[in-house]
């Protein structure tokens, strides 16, 4: 299974990349690599938000088992 993107970590990483890029002391090649990394990560984040599905469910406890059913 694909490792799920941790949103907090991703946002932290985005801030890191932005700060690094803005420092201006990177050479062009590294800048381009960082830029691509940042754009890719931010795209993954938006994708995660866009692809999430609305779901409102109710958990029903039956002995030791929990079943999930649509609430609405």
């Amino acid at each position: 299974m694909k490792k799920e993107l941790n949103f907090e970590d991703a946002m932290k990483k985005l801030e890191e990349i932005a700060t690094e890029l803005e420092k201006n002391d990177l050479d062009l090649d590294t800048s381009v690599t960082k830029f691509e990394e940042g754009m890719k990560l931010s795209k993954e984040c938006s994708k995660m938000l866009e692809e999430a599905e609305k779901k409102i469910s109710i958990l029903i406890k039956d002995g030791d088992t929990i079943t999930e059913e649509d609430f609405e």
Partner: peptide, 9 residues
């Protein structure tokens, strides 16, 4: 968040 996921217990 129109795509939020809520579990009601």
């Amino acid at each position: 968040n129109p795509n939020c996921y809520i579990k009601l217990l």
